[in-house]
Every structure is written in structure tokens, then in C-alpha cells.
Design a binder for these strands. Structure first.
Lengths: 155, 155
DNA sequence: ATTAAATCCTATCACTCCCATAGGAGTTAC
DNA sequence: GTAACTCCTATGGGAGTGATAGGATTTAAT
């Protein structure tokens, strides 16, 4: 397993949300159109949108001409919220939340590191809105991180 | 799956490395002693140490009185190196490296976000050494992240 | 030399999660 | 009424996680 693993589910969720944000408000968009737009598996996307609806990030309209719309303006939806909606908490350490870990002896400072890891992730995902991601006008800190030397290279 | 999931394997690896760092250099330490020291499953730890050895982070001594030692001073071993040794690359997006992702249309800026996520993780894990984690004297940036408002609370 | 203490290697296994699909029940616009 | 949707439940292959077992090999100490 990779420490940070952005799953297909999460990636699809973000892309679907971007599609919804891009359409502005021309009424509900169906799963079929959404799936076609970004080339996502239709049935799988259907279950993802159900998660997003339960989290209150999108609203659905049933029946003919129905579909999905954002529940809030794109500027008010942090990407982190999308992650949590489909994936649960951002960070876990062996099934526990970072701040709930405990260690004896030489490992006693580990929780600080785990919390810092989560905090750094939050600073990226919770400070970037759907609108910013759509326009490419990302927060200064996010830009700086991506502009870091070697940020685009493997290690 | 959680976006950041620190596995048992990775956690055990870091804790074992901390044990090795703490012992300074009193000769090799056996898996048995190591496992007892932090309460880790012996056989599982054995396979983890094999990974750490293949990555060149520890050296082993075979036979009676054998065991494991750090291959470098603790100040020269970043925590990130331990992660990569047992877990592979720090970050992946649907099985690809963040900088190798590609998207059309509305999702075109996504790679910048993915790279920023990885970059933020690197700034924590690659800038913290085994020695710093052992002593609790973490890098300024890591301390700041852990001191962020709400860093120790659930979201 | 023998023995005891280690690493090292291969195999196996239960379990869980991921990604996805199928089929149909319910709802609504036209 | 019917076509176009969402919504719900069930299913399933495959991969990965977290271990454990058993023994082959190597070495220090007596």
C-alpha cells in the first residue's frame, strides 16, 4: 500500500464534481451525461454520487429530466469535503485517527508526526475549493508546494 | 480506503527503526529483542526488517549474536526513506505517480493538486530524521503544522 | 565438532477492501 | 402512459493486508 493513495473512487468523485461546477446552473445533469463527459464507469459513478448526496455536497432530482447539481457554489466546496464524502476521514494510522494514537518509550513522539502529516494534507485539500481547481487559480501555498524543486520528479 | 493510510507495516518499521536508533551502537539487536521492545509481532517484523535491509537502511549480521543495526547515523535517515522502503512511493493516484496523471477538459488542473499533496507530504517526512523523531526536536515546519489550530481535532 | 542462536527464504492463509456490474423498484416530466 | 431518470440491494473477481509456519543457512561460543 502507498501512504497516500488516491483511489479511483475519490478521483472520479472530484472529476464529477468539477463537471457539475463547470456547467454552472443549467439544471440537473444525469449520471449518463456526467459519466460520458469524463469517461467514467456509469454504474460506479452512480454509487459515488449517492455518497456525495448523503454528504450534502450535491442535490438530486428524480425522474425524467432529473440528475445532479451542486448543493453549494463551487467556491464554497473544499476538495477535502469531497474526499471525506467518499472516503471517510483524510488520514488514519492503523485504523485510528492520528491524534488518537499512543506509543510507549522511544516512539512517544510519533503522534506529533502523524498529526503534522494530516495537517499538511488539510492545508492543501481544505484550502482549495472546487472553483479554484476548475479555474487553475490555486491557493498560494498550494502553488508553492507544486513549484518546490523536484516536486514533479520521482523520488 | 483513507487517502492517507499509514499501515501497520509502516508504523512497525518506524518503531523498529526508533528502537535501533535509541540503542546507539551496542552491536546488533535481534528481531526477538526488537519485537519485544515495542510489542510487535515477531514474524511480521522479520519480513519488515528484510525490506529495510534491501533498501540499505539497516545492516544485518547472521548467526548467533547476530541481528540488525542502522546502516547510517539516525540524523541521516529521513522518515520518508523508511516509508519508501516498506511501502514503495509515498503517493499514488489510481496506481500512477502524481506527476504522471493526465486529464482532459474540466479536470486539467488536477495534476498540480496531486503534486502539491505529495510535495506537502515530502516536506514532513523527508525533512524529519530518525534522530529528530527520537528526541522530539522536530523541524520548525513540522511543529508548526502540529500546532495549527484544530490540528489535534477530528474533521 | 557440536550446539545454540540468529538471519533468511518460501509458502500459505484468512480477511478485508476496491472496482465494478446487474437488475429492478420507484419517481417524475412530457 | 411512457420514456427518462434516480435509488436500492446484491453480487463477484481480484488484489492487498497482516500475519504465521517451517525449515535452510550462517555464525559465535564452548
Amino acid at each position: 500500500m502507498r501512504t497516500v493513495e488516491i483511489s479511483a473512487k475519490t478521483e472520479y468523485a472530484v472529476r464529477a464534481m468539477l463537471e457539475l461546477a463547470a456547467t454552472g446552473d443549467g439544471g440537473p445533469i444525469s449520471v449518463d451525461v456526467l459519466a460520458r463527459g469524463q469517461g467514467l464507469p456509469r454504474k460506479f459513478l452512480e454509487s459515488i454520487l449517492a455518497d456525495l448526496r448523503r454528504a450534502g455536497l450535491v442535490v438530486s432530482t428524480k425522474g425524467a429530466r432529473g440528475g445532479y447539481q451542486l448543493a453549494l457554489p463551487p467556491a464554497e466546496i473544499p476538495i477535502g469535503a469531497v474526499f471525506r464524502a467518499v472516503d471517510g476521514p483524510l488520514a488514519e494510522v492503523r485504523g485510528r485517527r492520528p491524534h488518537q494514537t499512543e506509543y510507549d518509550g522511544v516512539a512517544q513522539h510519533l503522534p506529533v508526526l502523524w498529526v503534522a502529516v494530516r495537517s499538511s494534507l488539510r492545508q492543501v485539500l481544505d484550502d482549495t475549493s472546487l472553483e479554484q481547481l476548475l479555474s487553475g487559480e490555486l491557493p498560494g501555498r498550494v502553488r508553492d508546494l507544486a513549484a518546490e524543486p523536484d516536486a514533479w520528479l520521482s523520488r
